[in-house]
Amino acid sequence: MNKKNLLDYTLHLADNALIIGHRNSEWCGHGPVLEQDIAISNIALDCIGQARNFYQYAAQLSVNDTSEDSLAYLRYTIEFKNCLLVELPNGDWGQTILRQFYFSTYQYFLYQQLQNSSDQQLAAIAEKALKEVTYHLRWSSEWVIRLGDGTEESKQRMEHAVDELWSYTGELVQAASYELLAVSEGYGVDLSTIKTKWEEKVRTVFEEATLTLPGNAWMQSGGKEGRHTEHLGFVLAEMQFLQRAYPGAEW
């Protein structure tokens, strides 16, 4: 088995969870309703928790002095393997909700299959995380529907969010090199099986939300291979600030 590939695959799962968790955490204290402030913070916490599980496993797969924190705080932008979608700015509540919905739909089907991974660690993390993601998906679906079929203004804002985010959805189900190898080695999830399920779920929810599904469009990609939007650099500059400013310190 190719250990480097297992590491890359695990890091990619970790980075996705961390960056969306970090973005969602920006809402804490600024939500539109107190109950929803709590909900989005909760989702952020779940995602950061998942990221930690993946990073801790990745650290085991790495050289001796690697830790969950060195992986999250001391890698550079081009080393991060998250999808572009999760690093995009929050925008308004509608855009955050829609991003979460796209991402949770992906994570839901992904973890469902990752539970059967030949790698026991990945399978165990996926099984635990699936319970959380099931809730994230339900919550975000309900909000997409509520806002899509709410008022004129909320509909317009959701349509705007669809425009903003759609071209970043393709990458979710488009396999990177380490994902293809992971499938052939038996521990990875075949994204081509997820693609249809993802589209179906999005179509169903959009229908109920009275939102129009965009047609074929050019899809952005590159994040999984370390080619990011300009936003990730700022996310990392902020997140990694203390570790960079005080090298080697314990916190």
Binding site: E26, C28, G29, I38, L45, A72, F241, L242, A249
Partner: peptide, 22 residues
């Protein structure tokens, strides 16, 4: 929260601020 120095501290701080909302 976005500048917490490590993952453990980040999770604890986020949970704490969320407790306050509660």
């Amino acid at each position: 929260i976005t500048r917490a120095p490590n993952l453990r501290r980040k999770a604890i701080l986020l949970a704490k601020v969320q407790d306050e909302a509660g």
